[in-house]
């Protein structure tokens, strides 16, 4: 494995705008996920439609109940319940049993505070929103989105997809050729940049009552404020999933080479082409 990342030449992989945006996002998304979990804890239920409160039926609940004296944490999704004691709903902090949806090691701040969570969330949102907008405009302008992120029609064949999946399963991530990203990378990056991130911003704004008044079409696009809140949570959950897979693949592909490429822009290519 180590052989694959040694001996090859350095190629320029990531341009400056991508590298700056990546690390700005590391900070912003870290803040947003932790503070978002704090905000969720204030009302750990999600609904569809315009309204939703304690007397209405949620599609998702993270909660706690006392079961024969033992406190039990659970996640209920559309009636299907999973015991999550110790992780979600009920957990321990400093030897004390706490009942909150997300535990202290996820939330920002660690100690429950809705107002502090909101303030950190809006700070993160400004960094994330402004950086994302600049990057998006810049990437449309320099062709990054069309050239590197959107898969070509010729690439989108079952055979090509199967080939790429096989390469990934063999832990062959680096490849030569004119294309910067392989098909699975293109699909996931395009999905995050063009779908998940705009969805997070759009649904986030839809939760603002003042934005609702000014731009009521936001409510129509997302099917009401509580639907927007649900979609915001789902999109955040997908983003967290992406981040986990992303980090796992960076580690598998050679973390030093990969992290360097996101700092200096240069990636060391394998000596022999790993393609079969």
């Amino acid at each position: 494995m180590a052989k694959r990342t040694t001996g090859g030449g350095l190629v320029k992989r990531h341009r400056l705008s991508t590298r700056i945006w990546h690390w700005v996002n590391v900070i912003a998304v870290f803040l947003l996920i932790g503070s978002g979990a704090s905000i969720f804890n204030a009302h750990p239920q999600l609904y569809w439609g315009n309204y939703g409160a304690n007397f209405d039926t949620p599609w998702l609940t993270i909660g706690a109940r006392a079961d024969a004296g033992e406190r039990q944490g659970f996640v209920n999704i559309a009636g299907i319940e999973i015991d999550t004691t110790g992780v979600l709903g009920v957990f321990e902090k400093d030897g004390e049993v706490r009942t909150r949806a997300f535990p202290h090691w996820i939330t920002i701040p660690a100690e429950y505070s809705l107002s502090a969570g909101r303030r950190f969330h809006f700070l993160g949102a400004w960094i994330f929103g402004v950086a994302g907008l600049l990057y998006f405009i810049w990437s449309l302008f320099n062709g990054h989105i069309w050239r590197d992120l959107i898969p070509r029609r010729s690439q989108l064949t079952p055979a090509a997809l199967w080939h790429d999946i096989r390469q990934h399963l063999r832990l062959n991530f680096l490849h030569g050729g004119a294309e910067k990203y392989n098909l699975l990378q293109k699909l996931s990056y395009a999905g995050v940049v063009l779908i998940i991130l705009p969805l997070l911003v759009g649904t986030g704004l839809t939760m603002s009552p003042n934005m609702n008044a000014a731009w009521p079409w936001l409510l129509d696009i997302f099917g009401g404020r509580q639907s927007a809140r649900s979609l915001h949570f789902i999109a955040a959950f997908l983003l967290v999933g992406f981040i986990f897979i992303h980090i796992a693949l960076v580690i598998l592909a050679g973390p030093i080479n990969e992290i360097r490429s996101m700092i200096t822009g240069r990636l060391k290519m394998p000596k022999e082409a790993p393609h079969d």
Partner: peptide
């Protein structure tokens, strides 16, 4: 109108 609580819930 819709009443939006800071906690996240809404009621009309």
């Amino acid at each position: 109108t819709r009443h939006d609580c800071v906690e996240g819930w809404s009621a009309i």
